[in-house]
Amino acid sequence: MVEIAFFAGAAGAIGGALAVVLLKNPFYSVLALVVHLVFLAGIFLLLRAQFLAAAQIVVYAGAVMVIYVFVAAYVGGIEEPAFDAHPRLRIFGPIVAAALFIEISIAVAGSALVGIGTEGPQDIPDDFGTPAAVGRMLLDDFLIAFEAASILLLLAAVAAIVLAGRRGSQTQEGT
């Protein structure tokens, strides 16, 4: 049962990822990423990361991709054939990707790490992956990371305003 779920999720995630890279119309690529993220959330569920799966869908596939959709629509799809890149890169790119994949897979397969060949301990606490568990850690062990992340979000908003905000009507900017 778990195997079926895994392969279905993996197929969807890989398919979505390939579609992002290979589709000509950037708008379709954006939509392909949404599909990829949904399937990836399914995989997260298999790893007992239920809060993160939900957060991924809500925050990422929900909010972030909406930004993408708006910008893709605004900027206009620049249709480009998928393999019209600089001829050297056209060959070099997939080779580098393949090399990366093979190298990492070999490292994983050849590792003597205990537990990597298992499904993970079966006796983990029931609240593993729940919002309560993650939330407690955010406010306890990783408080500073939590606060730094909120500051980062603020700065991203400031940056977006600086870069893309309209300046024409702002005469009294106080600079």
Partner: peptide, 9 residues
């Protein structure tokens, strides 16, 4: 694990 491929990667 010191020479293990996982940690080296």
């Amino acid at each position: 694990l010191l020479g293990d491929p996982i940690i080296l990667t």
